[in-house]
Amino acid sequence: MMTAKEKEVIQAIEEQELFTFAQYDPEAAERTGYSDYSYWRSTIRVFLRNKTAVFLLILMTSLVAFTFIQPYLPGQKDPIKIHIDPNTGLQLRNHPPDKEFWFGTNSIGQDLWARLWSGTRTSLLIAIIVGIWEIVFGTFVGAIWGYVRPLEAFLTEAYNVISNIPTTIILMLIAYILRPSFQTMIIAMCATGWLGMARFVRNQIVIIRDREYNLASRCLGTPTGRIIVKNLLPYLVSVMVMRVALSIPGTIGWEVFLTYIGLGLPLNIPSLGNLLNEGRRVMMAPALRYQLFFPAVVLSVITVSFYVLGNAFADASDPRNHF
């Protein structure tokens, strides 16, 4: 046991020790204001905080996976095979949903369940091709627009002209000129989709060129490549992800629209637009409305989900939301 006296002595010694100089460490001084901010980590963290978005991400990932493995599952039917009623020998028309035909059959006896997933596959495929083209070509044109000064005025004027014509009209004209087909659909949508991306990339490049923090960075001798990688690329990549996500509802919407005005895919290719159109034809008979409901519900879930996902990601990738 220490006596109170001893304690006091030890305390006094410790106190004396405390009032001597500490080791000065310049490294530690530099570390005082260290921030462990990381762009991608913050982006993912903000995204994960959005519960709706996380739910939809899981939903869409499983849905997309399902559409692609569905044909290989046991007991699946061919989407274009016309089923025959064994009793009458006639087409199994407008057969209501049951154990055999989960979503029923359409007006010529094709299995709606199989057609629905086949159509979703087609529509998603178009949307993804268009989305990728949009970011590749858009980035390319945007980069030229921003970097090649002699072409700047020309491209600006070209952008003005094209963006002044309503997209609807451009799409209709191209689809009309080229005759409806899978390729036509893709070409028509590729012709207009890249405009927004090109303008975005161009603006970013102008910012890289002229913003003060980049000017400062350049004055300090940072090579342009590094400025692009550090200051432009993270944001650009997140914009690309967002654009692809948002182009999916957009492309599906245009497909449905073109199909409605008779410029869609040929009838032998199931797509969400075609299915919806088939459903619309029989919608006046309440008993047959299932042919409209199933495609409409699947289409709405997909478009809304991707739209929300795209926007949620856009919010998450904006550094201003990273607190």
């Binding site: 100089f21 005082t32 204001g33 260290y34």
Partner: peptide
């Protein structure tokens, strides 16, 4: 030298100490 401390962290003692070449142990 250095920057003011990161205010997310809890600061013990005199906040200027790490930047102060003549800081005391206390």
């Amino acid at each position: 030298r250095g920057t003011p401390p990161n205010l997310f962290n809890e600061i013990r003692g005199d906040p200027f100490a790490p930047r102060n070449p003549q800081a005391l142990k206390i």
